[in-house]
């Protein structure tokens, strides 16, 4: 083991950490908003059909093909290159982020849907009886309960998205995986470099696992009303 090489490689790959974190957190945020929208759409027939088709397509195809479709596929259309969207789609960063958001939304919306189904009817009725409006019921009753129910599945999705960001390296973005791939073609010391990158991803995902276990514990019903955790 060549320790100088490995520590140098860690430092080099870590320069890609900000981009990886940026894509990860923004795609989760964007995906969550879109997932909520998709679930609100499900209240009427047409909206339900659109949301179901969206989920079907994005969950049924590999993320890699979605990324290529957005990055190379859309750029082939002249009218897109003339449109106001081009300044965004020209940049691989926005293409990668868009693909990650669209993909995450499909999975998150299904997780949220499961959570929403687990909300007891009685809780919503109780809200209505005490005079809450629809928006208030959504904000104060439905979403908090659904979120808690969906938390274990969602923490898996959060880790999946961290891993998914690695695929943007295929469209020239220099995230941690992109830097690792470039370093491999420079030095051909593939195994050491890949292991360095793997360790960094592993540490982040273990931190997420810890944090979500703690959060689940905090938000468990039997914890409610306690003054000291």
């Amino acid at each position: 083991m060549d320790l100088t090489f490995i520590s140098g490689m860690f430092q080099k790959i870590l320069t890609g950490l900000p981009l990886t974190l940026n894509l990860w957190l923004l795609s989760l945020a964007g995906g969550a908003c879109l997932a909520l929208t998709l679930n609100l759409m499900r209240q009427n027939r047409i909206g339900n059909a659109i949301a179901a088709t969206y989920v079907f397509v994005f969950r049924g195809t590999p993320l890699l093909i979605q990324i290529f479709m957005i990055y190379y596929g859309l750029a082939g259309f002249g009218f897109i290159r003339q449109s106001f969207l081009w300044p965004f789609l020209r940049d691989p960063y926005w293409c990668g982020l868009l693909a990650l958001i669209l993909n995450d939304a499909a999975y998150s919306s299904e997780i949220l849907r499961g959570g929403l189904r687990a909300v007891p009817k009685g809780a919503v009725e109780a809200g209505r009886v005490s005079g809450m409006g629809r928006a208030t019921i959504l904000r104060r009753i439905t979403l908090p309960i659904a979120t808690r129910q969906a938390l274990p599945a969602y923490s898996n999705e959060v880790i999946s998205m961290l891993k998914a960001t690695a695929l943007v390296s295929t469209i020239t973005l220099m995230d941690m995986t992109g830097i690792a791939r470039a370093a491999i073609s420079e030095t051909w010391r593939a195994v050491e470099i890949l292991l360095c990158a793997a360790v960094i991803y592993l540490v982040i995902s273990m931190l997420v696992t810890r944090a979500s276990a703690w959060l689940e514990q905090r938000l468990s019903p039997w914890q409610f009303g306690r003054t000291t955790p």
Binding site: D91, T172, A182
Partner: peptide
């Protein structure tokens, strides 16, 4: 400098203005 895993993709992005 932007590096591409596949050769033809370079020309694709040159043609579409990226």
């Amino acid at each position: 400098i932007r590096t591409y895993p596949n050769g033809p993709d370079v020309y694709q992005d040159l043609s579409n203005g990226r």
